[in-house]
Amino acid sequence: MTREFTKGNYKIDIFCDEFTIQYDIETDYSTLSDQENQCFSDLSNMTARFSNDEKDLKIPNLYYDELQVKNKVTQIAELLNINE
């Protein structure tokens, strides 16, 4: 899913909703390495608190914007070597 997002195949709001559901509800954490679990857990915390509403984003340390989510996905893709 992260690979497809970096290719531009998901809109940010859909990616955030789908990733949060996929990781938080549908993932068997025992199938992931410790590093994958940590990375995806961090990303899920961000995607669950994604907002594109300027009023939300003015609240410090509560919501994440599109650039922050994209940067985290890029960081994870590089760290876990899941690029194209």
Results as ranks from 00 to 15, higher is better:
84 E>D: 15
59 I>F: 06
62 L>V: 15
53 D>F: 01
54 E>M: 11
41 S>P: 06
1 M>L: 14
44 S>H: 04
75 Q>C: 08
74 T>P: 04
21 I>T: 09
65 D>P: 02
31 T>H: 15
41 S>N: 14
56 D>S: 05
48 A>I: 10
63 Y>I: 01
21 I>K: 09
52 N>L: 00
45 N>K: 08
71 N>E: 15
24 D>N: 15
53 D>C: 05
36 E>H: 07
12 I>D: 03
73 V>M: 01
67 L>G: 10
64 Y>E: 05
8 G>D: 07
31 T>G: 04
34 D>A: 14
69 V>C: 00
79 L>E: 14
46 M>C: 10
53 D>L: 04
75 Q>W: 03
10 Y>V: 15
37 N>S: 11
12 I>L: 03
69 V>R: 02
4 E>M: 15
67 L>Y: 06
26 E>F: 15
36 E>S: 08
53 D>A: 04
83 N>E: 07
40 F>W: 06
64 Y>S: 04
43 L>N: 02
76 I>D: 02
22 Q>W: 11
66 E>L: 06
69 V>K: 01
34 D>M: 15
63 Y>M: 01
74 T>F: 07
45 N>M: 13
26 E>D: 12
24 D>W: 08
60 P>N: 07
6 T>Q: 05
79 L>I: 08
33 S>K: 06
4 E>A: 12
42 D>F: 05
59 I>M: 09
26 E>T: 06
14 I>Q: 07
51 S>G: 01
57 L>I: 00
21 I>A: 10
77 A>L: 14
69 V>N: 00
64 Y>R: 03
5 F>Y: 03
25 I>W: 09
17 D>N: 11
48 A>L: 09
55 K>R: 14
42 D>M: 11
11 K>Y: 12
83 N>D: 13
10 Y>G: 07
71 N>L: 11
75 Q>P: 01
59 I>K: 13
43 L>V: 08
83 N>I: 10
2 T>D: 12
11 K>M: 08
62 L>D: 10
52 N>F: 02
70 K>N: 07
57 L>S: 01
62 L>N: 06
4 E>V: 13
65 D>S: 03
10 Y>H: 10
35 Q>H: 14
17 D>K: 13
84 E>M: 07
45 N>D: 09
57 L>W: 01
11 K>C: 08
48 A>F: 10
30 S>W: 13
73 V>R: 00
78 E>M: 10
36 E>G: 06
38 Q>A: 08
56 D>F: 02
10 Y>E: 11
6 T>Y: 04
18 E>F: 13
20 T>C: 10
28 D>C: 11
